[in-house]
Structures are given as C-alpha cells and as structure tokens.
Amino acid sequence: MTVSTATTAISTASAARRTDRRIRIARRAATPVIVVLSLGGLLLWLSTLELDSIEQRTLNWDYIFLRTGEHLNLTIVASILVAVLAIPTGILLSRTRSRFTRGFVLGLANVGQATPAVGVVILLAIIWQTGYTTALVALVIYSFLPVLRNTMIGLEQIDPFVKESALGMGMTSGQVLRRIELPLAVPVILAGLRTSLVFCVGVATIATFINAGGLGDMIVNGLKLQRFPVLVTGAVLVASIALLIDWVASVIEDVLRPKGV
C-alpha cells in the first residue's frame, strides 16, 4: 500500500506537470495563432472594401511599413536604453547600505507608476519640443523606474544563506555578484524588461500626439478623418506588435532563465 500510494503521488504530480507543460505549450502556440488570424482577418476585410482616395493614401504597404518601422524603432531603442541605464543603476543601488536611498528610489518608483504616460509625453513636448527625440526620452523616463525596481528586488530576494555560503567558499563579492546573484536575479530582471517592452509599444502609440510618428498616426488619422478602416488597421497592427513582442520576450526569458530556477 505504501508503494502504491507513493506511485499515486508521483503519477498525480507528473500528471500535474504534464498539464502544466501542455498549458505552457498551448499558450506559446496561441499568441502567433491569434496574431496570424487577426492579421489575416484584417487583410480579408480590407480586400472587400472600396477604398476612397484618403484611405488609399494610408492603406498601402509603403505607408504601413514606414509607420511600423517607426513604431518598432521607438520601442526597441527605448528598451535598449532602459536596459543599459536601469540595470547597472539597480545593481549599484542594491549594493548601497543606505536605507534612505533605497526607500527614496522605491518610493519614487511608486509615484512613477501613478504617473500617466500620456501626461509625461505631452508635458515633455510642451516644455521642450515635439518629435522623435522627445518621445524617446519620455519612453526611457517612463520605463526606467520599473526596470530599476525589478533589478533591485531581483537581487534582494536571493536567499542570504546562498550569498553567505558563496562568500564562505572564498568567492570575492564581485564573483558572488557575477556568478551567483546576477544569474539568480535574471528571471526577475527579465520580467521587468519584458513589462517595459510591452509598455513601450503602448506608449509609442501615443507618440503620435507629439508628431513622433508610429502606428498611432494611423489610429489618430482614422479618428480625425472618420475613416474606420484606417483606424482599425492601425489598432490591429499595434495590438499584433504588442502581442508578438511580448511573445518573443517570453521565449527569450525561458531561454535565459538559469536551469533549476
């Protein structure tokens, strides 16, 4: 009986793992399927429409590629800048013993979270200038704090005994950081970057308000000119890009996550 109970426990555990894996695979497969279906549906719908001259000016491949390129450029450049700036800052801040600095940064991150993105973008345009650079700066400012916070949290949540035993084995604190702490913090740091990436796609949409291009242009033009096909195309494209970027990030996250974590 002991044996059979043990096997039951194992078989239910492995069944749960199987279900888990199946759910993960399904989720992994679902995003591309959803994106392909909605883009296909969009194309099909557009092909049934008689486009007027205004619509033809935007609903052509050149225009769409241009806007998509602008959108991706803004998103990716901003995310790289954030990664380069926020992760080292987070590592430095997590080294400091000062409770005040920590509390200040985390408090600032909370206020940052309460700040509306559209407010940051428009304020920056008013006090500085409109255009690409402003949008980029706004995106970086806006995504900086979440990534910084995740870096700090990722490093701090590591079991202190792990660090202690690494030090006890004769590693220098630099070695502990590189070989133990950073690899263990990777999942949390990556999760922060992934969130900021998805966020950037969204905020890049409102870059259109300050003449920084992107797919937001299509949505806004569609609204202003009362051309629903234009609006829908812009919206579906932006949503597809957001889903795909999140999907790519989740794949990278899985690859980079240390085994056993």
């Binding site: 989720r27 995003t31 969204g202 949409t205 609204l223 919206a235 932006v238 949503a239 889903l243």
Partner: peptide, 21 residues
C-alpha cells in the same frame, strides 16, 4: 489568465479606437 494577459498587452489607444465604432 492567459486571455486576460493578452488583453492587458493591447495598447490602450488601439483598444479605445476600436470601441468607438
């Protein structure tokens, strides 16, 4: 949870625009 996650990914301006019609 996955569906709600997908929903959250969609940029708000896009969703708002789609809801107008």
């Amino acid at each position: 949870i996955a569906a709600a996650g997908v929903a959250l990914t969609i940029p708000s301006l896009a969703l708002l625009a789609l809801l107008i019609r």
